[in-house]
Design a protein around this nucleic acid. Structure first.
Length: 568
DNA sequence: GCCGTTTTCGGCCCGACTGTTTTCAGTCG
């Protein structure tokens, strides 16, 4: 049983308990445990076998014994029995906007409806109207919720939120009726996928802001409109929320709406221990406001360093901020060059020289060329002959652009048996090699892990490309033991790629802190197939920051001479 | 279900909006 399976079960128990109308705090104990497990980097099997789970805060007697049972036997009697008492469809109904556990249970108990299809049928035949507190409006709202669930239950890649968010901000700022205005929520925290866009505004005319926001031409539907808060669905199905506060409340509100929920809960808990009440309107000691002019001031009230939004995931940032141990996060400006770029030798659309010129314009001082290797026929992988030709061209270009360095690389397929794609003589001819899996994705976990570890231990391999192969919102990563891969990379001095393509963002930031603590190095790479895709770099920086990475953890902050020495 | 430097019981973060009802429950973030 893997950690992620355990996390899933704990979360599901939380949902089931909510549906059953149990004490909400009991549900929350399960959610909290699931969240904690996600943060804990240590192997869950080890924690259980060494009886250390119970010493972690949030894991009391009951949870410890239940998780132990799950880890050792693969089953949990409590969960199995609990599942039997709640029809499966009710859990998925929770994902319909406007429906919570109470309403779902009322519908189920009175009408026996236990699927979304059944619910739709019941609404259409007006069978809900006899229930207490269910009117025509409630029914219409549920139908709307079902429609939205079917159409828009998905999340969105970060760049979509980035574009829509900045347009909305520009529009609101241009009105002249707001003082401060910025994106909050997961957009500000630079999450790799977003559910919605949160916008915070300070203004003396909240009613006008509400009208302004809800009348933007992006808005397809207004789902809520109050005095200081409105919610809309945009044309592409993404939700957007706006909140207005007075300018003096803005810093507190900005922190509040930036979240994450887990970070806020943890900080409020800490505040409460110090006798401070914390909400979106302020920090209060004995009902007296503690004046803060910006977010920095808020953290200073708690004798903490400022926590950048990217880190606010309750992954240990609060403790680190208390102990002056927060990382100095890597920035865009730190990056001195890029690797993992494809040219028109394989499936890229630019020439090597076009890439060079663009890199120089962006202020980079080196470029690693890595076209696909010969097995990747679908992507025009390079034959030995192509490689020779490309290397000759690179030699000439290195002479022409003598202040710039072009490194000869290849993105070699990691073949199903774990070997790289050329013989040793050819492998030797490169300055560096990225190894990536592009085929036979469906291997069983052990086999896949061993395949990749074998490649990592190949002395010619320098970088592990998109380590898990995931495509955000469309394809799960291949089944691998990430911990073992990280271990192998560390032992063999193989650099972990942070693939900055916003559809990948792979390695996942949740693994970075652990890998960094183990001693691993990272490279942030655009995986560019065109000049335009060098723009991807900033998404890679975003997640590197979320993964607590500092300049010293990343190799493409090195200057031209240092990077040449690095691969020697 | 968890937790405790006032606590082993009684809390557990907090407020806006909606809809239904006329004082509040449910949902959401």
């Amino acid at each position: 049983m893997t950690k992620s399976e355990i996390i899933k079960i704990l979360n599901e128990i939380g949902l089931l308990l909510e549906l059953k109308g149990e004490n909400f705090f009991k549900s929350r104990a399960y959610y909290d445990a699931a969240n904690k497990l996600e943060v804990i980097q240590e192997d869950i099997q080890t924690l259980v076998s060494e009886n250390r789970l119970g010493s972690i805060k949030g894991f009391g007697k009951a949870l410890t014994s239940k998780i132990t049972e799950l880890v050792t036997t693969g089953e949990m009697e409590y969960y199995t029995k609990l599942k039997e008492t709640v029809p499966k469809g009710l859990v998925s109904m929770l994902r319909i906007s406007g429906l919570g556990p109470k309403k779902i249970m009322t519908i189920y108990k009175s009408l026996g409806v236990s699927t979304i299809e059944g619910l739709k049928e019941a609404c259409e035949n007006n069978r809900l109207l006899d229930l207490p507190r269910f009117s025509k409006k409630t029914k219409d709202k549920i139908l709307e919720g079902i429609k939205n669930y079917n159409e828009y239950s998905e999340k969105f890649h970060y760049p979509i939120g980035e574009v829509l968010g900045s347009e909305l901000l520009k529009y609101i700022k241009a009105s002249g009726i707001v003082q401060r205005c910025e994106a909050a929520g997961s957009l500000r925290r630079k999450k790799e996928v977003l559910k919605d866009i949160d916008i915070l505004v300070s203004s003396d005319e909240p009613d006008k802001v509400m009208d302004l926001f809800t009348s933007h031409y992006y808005v397809k539907e207004i789902t809520g409109k109050g005095e200081t808060k409105s919610s809309v669905v945009l044309q592409n199905g993404m939700n957007a929320d706006i909140r207005v506060v007075s300018d003096s409340q803005y810093p507190y509100a900005l922190h509040h709406f930036t979240g994450s929920k887990e970070h806020n809960t943890a900080l409020r808990h800490l505040a409460k221990k110090q006798g401070i009440k914390m909400n979106e309107y302020g920090l209060f000691k004995d009902d007296e406001l503690i004046i803060c002019h910006n977010e920095e001031d808020i953290f200073h009230v708690f004798s903490m360093d400022y926590i950048p939004p990217e880190l606010r995931e309750n992954y240990g940032e609060i403790e680190a901020a208390e102990n002056n141990e927060l990382p100095v996060l890597v920035t865009n400006e730190d990056i001195k060059g890029v690797f993992h770029t494809h040219t028109n030798y394989s499936d890229g659309n630019a020439t090597i020289e076009q890439l060079i010129i663009d890199c120089i314009n962006r202020g980079y001082s080196y470029l690693g060329i890595t076209d696909h290797s010969k097995t990747a026929i679908y992507a025009g992988g390079l034959t030995e002959e192509d490689i020779k030709r490309q290397h000759e061209e690179i030699d000439l270009l290195n002479e022409k652009y003598h202040d710039f360095k072009i490194l000869k690389g290849i993105e070699s397929d990691i073949l199903p048996d774990g070997s790289l794609d050329y013989n040793e003589r050819v492998l030797q001819s490169f300055d560096f090699i990225i190894g990536s899996v592009h085929s036979a994705f469906k291997m069983e976990q052990n086999k896949m892990t061993n395949r990749i570890i074998k490649a990592i231990s190949n002395p010619y391999m320098n970088i592990l490309g998109h380590p898990t192969g995931r495509l955000l919102l469309s394809r799960e990563g291949y089944k691998i033991d990430v911990e073992q891969i990280i271990e192998a990379c560390n032992e063999n001095s193989v650099v972990l790629e942070i693939n900055a393509n916003p559809y990948r963002l792979d390695l996942d930031w949740r693994h970075m802190k652990n890998a960094k603590e183990k001693g691993c190095k990272f490279v942030i790479s655009p995986d560019a197939h065109s000049i335009k895709e060098f723009d991807y770099m900033r998404y890679g920086i975003n997640v590197a920051r979320k993964g607590w990475l500092e300049k010293s953890d990343v190799i493409n902050v090195l200057n031209k001479d240092e990077i040449v020495r690095y691969f020697m």
